[in-house]
Structures are given as C-alpha cells and as structure tokens.
C-alpha cells in the first residue's frame, strides 16, 4: 500500500516522471522531490493558504492533495510566475505597494490571484478581500496586499502605464 508509485504530471510546463509514496502530499513532493521550495507549508490542514498552487489552472491547497492524484494533471507554482528577470504584474504591484513582509504567505497569495484576476479582471475591494480571506497573512494587515491586487488588475487591464 505504501510502495512508491510512478506518476507523470506537468509542472510549470514541463513533464515530470516521478516515483512517490501514495501518501506523500503534493506540497512535500514539490518541495522535496522537485526542489520547488517556493511553495510553503503553513498549517497542513488547508486553512492558511500558504501552499496554494494551480492545478489545471485552478487554485488548490497542495497540502490537502496527494501527489499521486496529479497523474496526468498540470501543476503551476510560484516559480513559473516571473518571466526571466521580469516580475509578473502581481509580483510587481506587491513589491511597489509593500504587499509582503516575511514572505511566507506570499506565494499562496500570488497563485490565488494569478487565477482569480484572469477570470475577474476588474474586481472591487470587497471582492478582493473576500477572495483573499482564504490566505492568512500574519504580518501586513492585508491593506497593502489589497492595494497591490487592485493595482495589478488595473495594470493587466490597461497596461503598465495605467
């Protein structure tokens, strides 16, 4: 039952063939087997949101997902968001608005809103706060994160000069 299983999944656009024990969490496989340590583990019970990644483009808790469930699926992590040296719009806005302090929750927030802003390009503050409520940040008080997300949405809609 606990013998490792071979799985094939796509991580950040690359097909990966790995052997993992069936009980190993996706968060641990990303961090330990694939050396993608940008995904953080904050609570391991699905509340804090730090471990959020995209599974087939949708935000999901990697701490509540077994890696073996990812056979044939596509996982996207924080490591894929910047293009070379250039921040994506969300990263740039978080930097400009001081939307992070210790940085531990940041990857989960970026991944949540990478997906959200694609489908909701013009959210208001209340909508952003509602979606952000799935990610705990112990440092910032959220105000600067909300400002950054609204700014990123504007930039994505209207271009960087907006």
């Amino acid at each position: 039952m606990t013998a490792p299983v071979e799985i094939s999944l796509v991580v950040n656009g690359e097909t990966r063939e790995i052997r993992v024990p069936p009980r190993k969490l996706l968060s641990d496989v990303l961090r330990e087997d694939l050396h993608l340590t940008g995904t953080h583990v904050g609570c391991e019970h699905g509340i804090c949101g730090a471990c959020t990644v995209l599974i087939d483009g949708e935000p999901a808790r990697s701490c509540l997902t077994f890696a073996v469930q990812m056979e044939g699926h596509e996982v996207t992590t924080i490591e894929s968001v910047a293009t070379g040296d250039a921040f994506g719009p969300l990263q740039q806005a978080l930097h400009e608005e001081h939307g992070l302090q210790c940085g531990f929750c940041t990857a989960g927030i970026v991944m949540t809103f990478e997906a959200y802003l694609r489908e909701n390009p013009d959210p208001d503050e209340a909508e952003v706060r509602e979606v952000l409520s799935g990610n705990i940040c112990r440092c910032t008080g959220y105000q600067s994160i909300v400002a950054a997300i609204l700014k990123a949405a504007r930039v994505i809609r209207e271009g960087p000069s907006a």
């Binding site: 940008g38 924080i78 968001v81 910047a82 990263q91 930097h95 992070l100 210790c102 940085g103 531990f104």
Partner: peptide, 9 residues
C-alpha cells in the same frame, strides 16, 4: 521582496 516574490526565499 525579489527573492520572496519569485519563490526563492
């Protein structure tokens, strides 16, 4: 910020 934002903290 840079290292935290790109997942390289």
């Amino acid at each position: 910020d840079r290292r935290f934002l790109i997942g390289k903290g």
